[in-house]
Design a protein around this nucleic acid. Structure first.
Length: 488
RNA sequence: GGCCCCAUCGUCUAGCGGCUAGGACACCAGGUUUUCAUCCUGGCAACAGGGGUUCGAUUCCCCUUGGGGUCACCA
């Protein structure tokens, strides 16, 4: 019974209980890729059957996150579609109907035990270091289901072998099959039941989900059979692990909301590329994949079976790469269009000036929110304090033992010479070079003195670059004020 | 504890019986006639351990070890 000819429809089915981190996004991304590759549909379905854990606004947040990364879906709660609604809390009738079929077939029954009683049984099993199986206590004559008790699946334990698109061939014995709850006493279905019904009704072809569901698959297989449903293809994603520990990436381990990455100025394409490469590769040595390449080359069978650690430095590198690849024009456009202000002090500066500044710093930008820190001095004069501080305790070895008076006279000489120069990078370079000869000093001495005067920082883009962007009058004014500081 | 999954440089990974075990990030050194960065060049660095199978194992099998998941009226 192959499902290979069925049209490809994948879904991302988060529960609205919080934000989306990289792990969640990766699951969504892979589903999105599988769908796009086959010209199929990608569906968003909200699994909001636990009203206690539900977080207000989480659904909006999830939708925003997907949108921010360009992972558009064809059907979803806010979009509708042929199998609407796409919110489980609005599909209760559907679950009831399927549940009734099971009851009629003698494959579901009301659970007579109270939660406390079940818990007592569970504790006992645990104390005996045995796995807990409800079916060991299955009532001989269960009460009719009245909707106020949980409805349990009457399982038929057996061994299973099945194929997982990522993990390969898997198998388990009958001892893992149990009577799990289909519908809770509050009337909502459990994930275990609802997702199976929905996937079938929505004609989902591939179920792509995290490793935490692997152990439940045999139970799902048992339920598919009871329901007479053909099971979709199954693909299990290994977990993404935290940077240091081996634990699954979680909020506690510092997993960040993907929207925070967006806000910090990580580019959607870079983020997508990075997340895809966490656990997937095409078998070649390629590292950078455009979205189109990803769609073309992605394959579930090339997804790594083992968990991947999340390395933020690699993300930074990749993002920097994407930024550089974009170039000044495009980056400038993007900055203008962004709802976020990455410019800081430079916010209201002239567009052409901002572009010139961008050209100076684009090579050292790892993410956009670094911009203010990198460019501040282009827009406002450095504080006297920061200039003084650097002159008094310079980190440059050559400057360390130099008296302030000497620095002052070097700066003065530089000022005078620069006064005669054209302020374009080439002429400035030439000017600085001849200045070195005239003053018989080394670049390692003279340049930091000028740099500090201009920027109040010990490292900046190249001096000719900085001078030419700042312009003659501003540069000379800053140098003059630094001279005063050195005199005092 | 039962069951299931996993295991190549610090990290992400290539490898699908024969390779000097390759690439990328990070790190280190040198270069791009000043700093930081970019870019280029070079370097450091891995098959968890033990048994098999085989002419030959990183690769196939078994055991051990280690890591993870699961055993909810959460998903």
């Amino acid at each position: 019974m192959s499902s290979s000819e069925k049209p490809v429809r994948t879904r991302f089915a988060p529960s609205p209980t919080g934000f989306l981190h990289v792990g969640g996004i990766r699951t969504a991304l892979f589903g999105w890729l599988v769908a796009h590759q086959a010209g199929g549909q990608f569906i968003l379905r909200l699994e909001d059957t636990d009203k206690a854990r539900e977080v207000a606004g989480a659904d909006e947040h999830i939708i925003k996150s997907l949108r921010a990364l360009g992972l558009d879906y064809d059907e979803g709660p806010d979009k509708g579609g042929p199998y609407a609604p796409y919110r489980q809390s609005q599909r209760l009738d559907s679950y009831k109907a399927w549940a009734q079929k099971l009851i009629d077939a003698g494959r579901a029954y009301g659970d007579p035990l109270s939660p406390a009683e079940v818990q007592a049984l569970r504790d006992r099993a645990r104390a005996a270091k045995k796995p807990f199986l409800y079916r060991d206590y299955r009532p001989a004559n269960p009460p009719a289901w009245d909707g106020a008790r949980p409805l349990r699946f009457k399982s038929e334990p057996k061994a299973y072998k099945w194929h997982d698109e990522v993990m390969g061939d898997l198998s388990t014995g009958p001892e893992v099959i149990d009577d799990f709850i289909l519908i809770k006493s509050d009337g909502y279905p459990t994930y275990n039941f609802a997702h199976i019904v929905d996937d079938a009704e929505m004609k989902i072809s591939h179920v792509i989900r995290g490793q935490e569901f692997l152990a439940s698959v045999p139970n799902y297989l048992n339920l598919y059979e009871a329901l007479g449903l053909e099971r979709p293809r199954l693909a299990t994603m290994p977990h993404i692990l935290g940077p240091d520990g081996n634990k699954k990436l979680s909020k506690r381990d510092g997993a960040k909301d993907v929207l925070d990455y967006i806000r910090d100025g990580y580019l959607p394409d870079a983020l997508v590329n990075f997340i895809a490469s966490l656990g997937w590769n095409d078998g070649s040595e390629q590292e950078i994949f455009s979205r189109e390449e990803l769609i073309k080359k992605f394959s579930l069978s090339h997804v790594q079976k083992s968990g991947a650690r999340f390395d933020e430095r690699r993300l930074e590198w990749m993002n920097g790469h994407y930024i550089r690849q974009m170039g000044v024009e495009q980056l400038s456009d993007l900055l203008n269009k962004s709802p976020n202000d990455y410019w800081g002090k430079g916010k209201s500066a002239e567009p052409t000036y901002k572009k010139a500044v961008l050209a100076q710093v684009i090579d050292r930008l790892k993410y956009l929110s670094e911009l203010p820190q990198l460019t501040g001095f282009f827009f406002t004069k450095p504080s006297n304090q920061s200039v003084r501080q650097l002159y008094e305790a310079p980190e440059d070895r050559l400057l360390k033992d130099m008296p302030k008076g000497q620095m002052g006279s070097l700066l003065k000489a530089a000022s005078q010479k620069l006064h005669t120069s054209q302020f374009d990078p080439d002429n400035l370079q030439a000017c600085l070079n001849s200045l070195l000869e005239e003053l018989e000093t080394k670049p390692g001495v003279l340049f930091p003195i000028i740099r500090i005067a201009l920027s109040g920082a010990q490292s900046t883009p190249s001096l000719p670059g900085v001078l030419s962007v700042l312009g003659k009058s501003e540069s000379l004014a800053r140098m003059a004020s630094a001279e005063k500081i050195l005199e005092s």
